[in-house]
Design a protein around this nucleic acid. Sequence first.
RNA 1: GCGGGCGUAGCUCAGCUGGUCAGAGCGCCAGGUUGUGGCCCUGGAGGUCGUGGGUUCGAGACCCACCGCUCGCCCCA
Length: 421
Amino acid sequence: MTSAPTARPVRGTHDLFGEELRRHRHVAETGRLICARWGYEEIVTPIFEHTEVFARSLGDVSDIVTKEMYTFTDRGGDSITLRPENTAGVCRAVITLGLHQNLPIKLFYYGPMFRYERPQKGRLRQFHQIGIECIGAPEPLADAEVIAAGAHLLEELGVLKATTLELNTLGDLESRARYREALVRYLDARRNQLSAESQLRLTRNPLRILDSKDEGDRAVVAQAPLLLEYLSPASRDFFERVKDALARLGVSWVENPRLVRGLDYYTHTAFEFTTTQLGAQGAVLAGGRYDGLVKTLGGPDIPGVGWAAGVERLALLLAQVPTAPRPIAIVPIGAEAEAEAWVLARDLRRAGHIVDLAFAGKPAKRLKRADRLNARLAIFVGEEERARGTVTLRDLDRGSEEQVPRAELLSRLAAAQAERT
RNA sequence: GCGGGCGUAGCUCAGCUGGUCAGAGCGCCAGGUUGUGGCCCUGGAGGUCGUGGGUUCGAGACCCACCGCUCGCCCCA
C-alpha cells in the first residue's frame, strides 16, 4: 500500500496497536504474574550485548550466529549485537552481578528479540519472548519445575489444550558426544541418500538431521541409532527423575526421541510445547537444560535450565480477546459549560476513572465519539444542570438518564464501578 | 538464502479473453435533528490501480525487474 519508505515499517517489524496490543499485553502480563508466582524474579537485561556473548554461547556455526544476528560496529569500534534470545544475556548478568553467590537463582524476563529471518506467520524480525531461567540447580526437580511453570502459563492463557508437550533428553555432555559420533558414522555411510541440506548439517549440526522434514532424510533417520541407547546410566536416571516429577505435578507429555535443540548449549532435558494451529511455527514455548553455558561465558561451572515463549505466537493462539477498558465521556452543552467539563474530567480522573473529553463539537458529535470509544456512561453538563446543581448521567448501553446531584457524582460512580467488579 | 501465491480508496474486495474500469460495501466528514450516540435518508472527501521499465493505437489488466505482504523450506519462540 504505502510505498513511501518513511511511512513503511522495516520488514519483519510490527506496530502494536488496538486488539493486537491487547492480546500481546495480556500474554506478557499473565507471564509476569505466573512466573512471579513460581518464585521467579524479573530481570531486564540490555537489548544489545557484545557480539561475543552470543557467538560463544550459541556456537560459532549455529544458524542464528552465522546468518540471523543484527550485528554492527558501534562508534567506539566495538562489535555489538541485538540479542537474538535472552538466555545468554541473563547468564552474563548473573556473572556480572555476582548472583551466583546465592544459588539457585530463579529469574524471568520479558522483552524484544531480534533475528534476521524471512518473516512468516508468528515469526518476526523483532519479536518478544517471555522466559524463565533457573540457574545453579543440578537437580532434575528443577527441570520439572520449569516445565510445570510453563504449562501453568499456557493453562492460564487458555491455550494449554491447543498444545502438546514434547519431551526428550540429550544426555550429559559425554553421552551426547558419544551418540553424536555414532550418528555421524551411521549417516555418513548413507550420505548420498541425504538431502543437500542434511549433508551440510552432517558436519555442522548432525543432531538436527533427526528432525528434518525431508522425506528421504526421514527414511534414513528411521533406522538411525537412538540417543536413548547411548545415555550413561546417570543421564538415564536423570531423565527418569524428571519424568517422575512431571507426572506427580500433573503435567502430561509425549516422548519424542528425535526432538533436538538448535542451540549448542543444551544438555539433558529438551522440551517444546507445540501447536498445529500456527502453520510451520509449531513451537510456542520451548527450552531445556544448559549445564555448560555459564562456564562458557566465563563464569563458574554452574548448571541452568529454562525456557522461552514466543509472545506473538501465544497472542495469536489466544481464544478470547481481552476487551479494552470503557471510558466515561463528558459532554458539555453550551460554551458556558466547557470549563466546567474540564474540571469535572480532572476530578473523575483523579478519582480513578477513565475519562474522555472531546475538545470541540456539538453534543451530537461528542456523543458519537463516545459511542465509538465504547463509553459506558456519558455525563452532560449544561445550563439546566447548573441551575439544578446536578449533572445528567446517561447509561449509553440502556439509553436511560437520570439527574445526579453534583456533590454525589463521585460516590455514585464509585458505587457503580464496585458493582461491576 | 531458496520455492509458491498475492499487491486496486483507511478496511474488505469487484473489475470477464487489454478499449467509459477507476467501482461497491464498510469506515470517515457534513447535513436532515437550534441540548443527546447506536437505526434511517441525503450529500461529500478519499486512489500516480506497490514502484520502475517494456509490448500496444490503447494496460489496473500482458511481459520483465525491483519492493512489499503471505505460505512453505531453512532456522526457531
